[in-house]
Amino acid sequence: MTAITRINAVKDQTAILSARNLKAWYGESQALHGIDLDIHSGETVALLGRNGAGKTTTLKSITGLMDRRSGEIKIGGKDISRLPLHHIARHGLGFVPEERGIFSGLTVQENLLLPPIVAEGGHTVEEIYALFPNLKERRHSQGTSLSGGEQQMLAIARILRTGIRILLLDEPTEGLAPVIVDRIGDVIIALRKRGITIILVEQNFRFAQRVAERYYVIEHGQVLDQFSAAELPGRQDWLSDVLGV
């Protein structure tokens, strides 16, 4: 039994989130061609791939943000693929978009308190302010007056309040200074310790290496391969070819 088969055997029993034959379209153009994913409870998984491979579209399809998609998506064994967009979050799924989605018409605190609580066990506002002291200091400022790093912290923080169990992060380090990237890495590791399942789309491979336990490599809207962090050293050259780095 190969390592990958062993992972499949485990994940099929315990997958908190799974996708089968996930397809998605932008207008007439098909972006996903049948993605299969199985994410275990509490693990941090990175989706790797070149620009335009379909990583962000995969996250958006799981969240329900793609207007046109097909396939099966299950959270905790329950099919959510046909639910209205606002019902999907109530199954414990939180999404932080690449552009962060901070609302300019709302203060930092209003942004933080905006997403409804979907389950018990989320961070309290006090815990969030302890985790991100900058946000407390600037809670009465407009959300978009924050720096890029602070906006990313706010985008993650507001989802943590809701009690979600699965966090989808799209390019969380995009355009941020190295010191802020490190800080976001610390936060992701802290969330993992709290048992939150994380799916991460990341171009910064060094960052992904620091936090991810498993990888999916996506190309042309399909899963090319998947492997654990332990298998990464043996695949570095192949991965460099695929990612073009």
């Binding site: 943000l65 967009l85 606002h86 019902h87 109530r90 609302f103 709302l106 409804p116």
Partner: peptide
């Protein structure tokens, strides 16, 4: 109010607000 915050946020990005679990329709 919270209703107003939803309204102002949905004015900017209704899909994201709905993805948070707010019944935007």
């Amino acid at each position: 109010t919270k209703f107003g915050a939803y309204l102002r946020a949905a004015t900017e990005n209704p899909k994201l607000v709905q993805a948070f679990g707010v019944n935007v329709p």
